[in-house]
Design a binder for these strands. Sequence first.
DNA 1: TTCGTCATGTAATGGGTTACATGATTAC
DNA 2: GTAATCATGTAACCCATTACATGACGAA
Lengths: 224, 224
Amino acid sequence: MSRRSGILEFAVLGLLRESPMHGYELRKRLNTSLGVFRAFSYGSLYPCLKTLVQQGWLIEEPGNPPEDPLAAPLAGRRGKIVYRLTAEGKEHFEELLAQTGPDAWEDEHFGIRFAFFGQTSRDVRVRVLEGRRTRLEERLAKMRASLARTRERLDDYTLELQRHGMESVEREVRWLNELIESERAGRDRRETGEEPPSEHRSPDTGGLPRHQGETLPDPSDDTT
Amino acid sequence: MSRRSGILEFAVLGLLRESPMHGYELRKRLNTSLGVFRAFSYGSLYPCLKTLVQQGWLIEEPGNPPEDPLAAPLAGRRGKIVYRLTAEGKEHFEELLAQTGPDAWEDEHFGIRFAFFGQTSRDVRVRVLEGRRTRLEERLAKMRASLARTRERLDDYTLELQRHGMESVEREVRWLNELIESERAGRDRRETGEEPPSEHRSPDTGGLPRHQGETLPDPSDDTT
DNA sequence: TTCGTCATGTAATGGGTTACATGATTAC
DNA sequence: GTAATCATGTAACCCATTACATGACGAA
C-alpha cells in the first residue's frame, strides 16, 4: 500500500514529460539518472502509477513506447503498458515545479527537484536554492549551539561525528551560494520547458548537495 | 505500530549503557547528540522501549534517574519510568557492536554506529570503517560507469547533480581513509568501554560521512 | 491560576521495501 | 530449450511520523 507518494509522483511526472514509457523503464531511469540519490521499487511505483491514472494525469496505452511501435494492440494477455502524460498532468507538474513552499527545501525532495530545474524559470530556481540555503543555515546554527552547549560530556567519536557533519553542511551551503550566483549572473540557460541545442553546457554551476551517501540501496540492475 | 526498530534499538541500548533514563530524556538525547543525523519521535521510541523490555534487555523502574532520587515509589498514577539496561541487554548490545555484517556499512546505520565507536575495540572499528569505504567505492564505480554511459541525454542540472554527488562521496572516502590511518597509527584512544581521562582528544581524525543534510526534521525542542 | 515543560502513551497514516506470483520476449 | 531480461503486479511487513489524549509539577 503506497498510493500517492509526493516525491515519487513528482519524479514520475517529470520523467514522463520527456517521453512516454513503460513502468519498467521508468523505474530504471528512476534508479540511474535520479537514483544516484534515491531508489524506488515496483512496490511503490506501480501503485503510484495507478493513482496518477485515476487523477487523470496519466493515461495508459497498450504497446510499446514510440521508439519501437511494432507491438500489435494485444487485447487479451496482460500486455505492456505505456504511460503518457495528459494535458492535465502536464499542467499539474508545472504547478508542482512552481511551488516554493517549505518541502521544496527538504533534504529528501531537494535533489529530485534540482534534477528537474531545467523545466522551470530562473526565478523559481533561485527561490528554491535560497530557501534551501536558509534551511541549512538554520540547521548549522542549531548544530553550533548544541555543540557549544554540551561539549564536555561527548566523547571523541561523537564529537568528530558532529564536526564532520557540520563541515559537510557548510560545504553544501557554499555550493548553493555558487549555484545562486551563477543563476543570477544569468548564464545561458533555457528559461523553461524544452531543451536548448544542447551544445554549450555552462560548466560553472555545481551539483546537488543532498546526502552524499544516503539511500542508494544498491540499484543492482542498471547495466543496460 | 513499530516494535523492534534496528537502529533505534541500537541507539537506545547504547545510551542506556551509560546511565538509566526516562523515555523523555532518552528521546532528547537521541535528538541532540545523535540527532544531528537522525531524529526520532515518541511514536517510535515508546513502542520500541516496550519491546526491549519484553526481550529482557531493559527493565522499567518507577521514579527518577540516579541524579534526583527524591521521587517516592508512586504506585498508583501513571508515574515516571526509568529504563535500565539489564545484564542481558548489555551483552546483547556488545554483540550488536561487534557485528561487522553489511548493515554496519549502510548509510542509515553508519553514523549512529560511529557515535558508539568508543565502546568497541579498535579492531572492530577498523573493520567497520573499511567495510564502509568498500561500499562507497563500489557506489562510486557504479556512478562513474552510469555517468560515462548516458552522458549525452542528461541536461545540465542532472549532470551537475551527479557530479556533486560523486564529489561528496569521494570526499567521504578520503575522510574514511584518514580515520582508518589514524586508528592504525594507534592514537591514544580507549580500547573499549569507559572513558579515558578525557583530556587529550586527538584532533586528527575526521567526522561522520553520512548525509550532510539528511533527515533532521527540526528537533524543535533541544533548548535544555 | 495558568503556562511551560516534563512525561507517557495510542491510533491513524505515510511512504516505502521484500518477497512472491506470473508471464512474454530475446539471445545463445 | 533454456537462461536472462523485460514487464506487471500484489500482500505482508517495516519503520517511522503526526496528531491526539492524558496528566503531573514548578514557577510566575
